[in-house]
Write a protein that binds this DNA or RNA. Structure first.
Lengths: 251, 251
DNA sequence: AACATGGCTGCATGATCATGCATGTTCCTG
DNA sequence: CAGGAACATGCATGATCATGCAGCCATGTT
């Protein structure tokens, strides 16, 4: 782990847990507390966190949000993202959903990839800006702040004009009965509209999503071409899904 | 392996793993760490990655925007941005252009601002994500990579559906004869369409833009409500503009 | 064929940085 | 107020870095 990565890890934890304890992080990373303290001191000097006795607190909600975008490497989402990125083949057209996992997919695309990516997420589009050979098509509309995606009637309308080979769909739950779910009705409608515009829909489902269900159904399970997950092979929910004929792609 | 191939390999690894460690890559490719370091140094200079102690990290979109292009006149843009941010008043609706100066405006908005911002730049929209009370409306279309804004027929069409109080327009040149200019015809058309949708258009023009002219005219000088600049008060070009009745707002 | 040029590479050098430990200080808790 | 935990600081060590230099190779020129 690079020292610079450790700092983003600290900011990430800060955003997630709303606090950081120097001793715990030192033990977790196998470093001396001195190094962690030095990091926290420097981050505080840069205004990125607030130093307190025993650890640190977030500097402000805005900063915490900003840093949360820079996810740290080898975690569950990253594995799923790398596997999903392989589905966007050179020359193809893909629809990329919003959310943190889809953002990780955008960042995991090889820098040399030549393809067309359609997205309703400004964050994803911004991340794709560093890929010189990726054509970006942005779907506009009212931006739903929680997940930073364009939703609503205008966005659905804009989606109706596109066609793609694959749609990489992010959800908050994959459940044997409830199907694929998310937390907002407008978001669900937008995802549903996007699924209709692609030949194949693949679901991005890091391990914690498997077996979970949110309030609004996006699609039934049999409407997708595959579910990409890093959940362990012995997962009961996955066995149910496999029994129903839903292809599981191991990340 | 050619040196150029090695660089693309580094960028791909960076996308896949979210980091690169100089020592590991050197061992893997059978090269000295010096060569890898040289590569990373050059890639960082090109804005394609971020050099850190021990290796490199991916360049974040915002950073790529700033470093790759005008790392110059950052202070100048910042002053203009702060002055322009004051034009987006609480409760109003503003159209915010793309480009680095407009991005600076987005970042200069107070965190407590309650307003509606319409933009065709995914980068600007992403930056506004941290403002909890700013309603974001995204205009979609094909994204023009150089300045990261949606352009083309679909974007112009989407623009026709909105209405705003002010439009903060970014240009590359403000010239007494050529008027307000930019470097791309589609971009110019999009900016023109946006100007029609706002009651007042203000131009973001940091000092180096004054007196410059690019190839495509966006608007004549008398079509705008004001030009926001930090150019010195004794500037000849500004005197010409003032003589023609164009209001100058000092940043 | 002989030579010059320029890019790429590896090595050596001194500088810089990250880290852990020791020391003395400050802070929290009971 | 006492004990212990957390802290800042200085220092030693090893890793990493920038720079300059020399060798190698491909290319183009005489």
């Amino acid at each position: 782990m690079l020292a610079a990565q450790r700092r983003t890890l600290l900011l990430d934890r800060l955003a997630r847990d709303r606090r950081v304890i120097a001793k715990d992080i030192a033990a977790e990373l196998g470093l001396s507390e001195d190094s962690i303290r030095r990091d926290l001191r420097d981050l505080a000097a840069a205004g990125l966190c607030q130093r307190v006795y025993g650890g640190a607190l977030p500097a402000s909600p805005a900063i915490a949000d900003y840093t949360a975008r820079q996810a740290v490497s080898v975690d569950s989402k990253q594995r799923v993202a790398v596997a999903a990125a392989a589905l966007i083949t050179p020359g193809s057209t893909a629809i990329l959903d919003g959310g943190t996992t889809a953002l990780a997919v955008a960042q995991a695309l090889p820098a040399t990839l030549s393809a067309t990516v359609i997205t309703h997420s400004p964050t994803v589009a911004a991340a794709l800006g560093t890929h010189p050979h990726v054509e970006i098509y942005l779907l506009g509309g009212r931006v739903f702040k929680h997940s930073m995606v364009a939703c609503g009637a205008a966005a659905v309308e804009a989606a109706s004009a596109v066609h793609a080979d694959v749609f990489l769909l992010g959800v908050t739950g994959v459940h044997p009965d409830a199907g694929l779910t998310t937390g907002d009705p407008d978001e669900a409608a937008m995802k549903r509209a996007l699924a209709q515009r692609a030949a194949d829909t693949y679901v991005l489902a890091s391990a914690e999503k498997i077996g979970a269900a949110s309030r609004f159904t996006v699609l039934p399970l049999d409407a997708v071409a595959g579910i990409i997950t890093d959940a362990p092979a012995s997962d009961d929910t996955l066995d149910h899904l496999t029994a129903r004929g839903v292809p599981i792609l191991r990340a």
